Computed example of a mutant assay.
Amino acid sequence: MDLSLLAALNAERAARRAAVIVTDLATGSARLVREAEAASDPLADAIAERFLTGKSGILEGDGPATFLTVQVPAVRLIAIGAVHISQALAPLARLVDLDVTIVDPRTAFATPERFPDVPLLAEWPDEALPKLGGLDRYTAVACLTHDPKIDDPALAAALRAECFYVGALGSRRTHAKRVERLEAAGFGADEIGRIRAPIGLDIGAVSPAEIAVSVLAEIVSALRRNRRREA
């Protein structure tokens, strides 16, 4: 592989952006296609499908034999709040290959005993999120503390970063107050409308584990729907 192409691919990887190297197997010629440019590429449909699956391989078809080397960022879930829902959500999310991190400044809740084998930052979101490399379009943020001092900064950061999923626990009345605070902070109706609140699909969930299932289902739905729409 051409070193300049490899360097460009590594730059996209470091920036957590999807990209694919398209190689003509007959001639050896190759080009880099970034996700933002993919819609205008001659192989747009095939590349979009590979971004959905994240799998490299030979492109089957009537044209010249082509190999697609696909690089898609790992999808992250950042749960704000080391609560009972998070305890159930973390292992479920890992089963569908999400990289999970728990953020909660309340050290009585954010303990390794309650969250074994899960990255845990016992810090305020303003301090913790930059340490995670910031947020991006391959990140889901679920705010679960029910405490505006903790949830609101994370929501603001997630909206600014255009995370593919932003959800917040709380009743409609609680969310109405949240909307007022975000409006006062300068967010518009379209931005605030991206927040899934009450969080999770409406499956009649009652227990923390059931709510965790509804949240994970909503995250997966948002991930797949967003990728298909962009395709």
Rank of each mutant, 00 (worst) to 15 (best):
R178Q: 06
R172P: 06
I192W: 10
R196N: 08
H175N: 06
K177I: 05
A184K: 14
I195Y: 00
H175M: 05
S171P: 14
R172V: 08
R194G: 05
L182D: 00
I192F: 08
P198W: 11
A185L: 12
I199W: 03
R194V: 03
R173C: 05
R178G: 03
G170L: 15
E183N: 14
G200D: 08
E180Y: 11
G188Y: 10
R181C: 00
H175I: 00
I192E: 06
R181F: 00
T174W: 14
S171Y: 12
R181Q: 03
R181D: 00
P198L: 09
E191K: 01
E183W: 10
K177C: 04
E191I: 06
A176G: 08
D190G: 05
G170N: 13
I192K: 08
E183Y: 12
A176W: 10
T174R: 15
G188T: 10
G188W: 07
A184P: 06
S171K: 11
K177E: 07
G193F: 01
D190E: 14
R178I: 07
R178E: 02
G200I: 06
A185G: 03
I192V: 12
A197F: 02
A189L: 09
D190M: 04
I195L: 02
A184N: 12
I199V: 13
E180K: 10
L182Y: 01
P198A: 07
E183L: 15
A197D: 02
K177L: 14
L169C: 10
G200L: 08
A176D: 13
A189M: 09
R194N: 06
E191Q: 13
A185S: 04
A197G: 04
I199P: 08
P198E: 12
D190T: 01
T174Y: 14
L182G: 01
L182P: 00
A185H: 07
G193L: 01
V179Q: 06
S171N: 14
E180A: 15
A185C: 03
R178D: 01
E191T: 09
F187V: 11
E180F: 13
F187R: 09
A176I: 03
K177M: 11
G186W: 09
G170Q: 13
R194E: 02
G170Y: 15
G170A: 12
L169M: 15
A189E: 13
A184L: 11
R172N: 12
V179P: 05
A176C: 06
I195G: 01
R178A: 05
E191A: 15
E191F: 01
R194F: 02
E191N: 05
G200M: 08
A184Q: 13
R172K: 13
S171R: 10
T174I: 09
R178P: 04
F187I: 09
G188C: 12
D190C: 04
E180S: 09
A185T: 02
A197N: 09
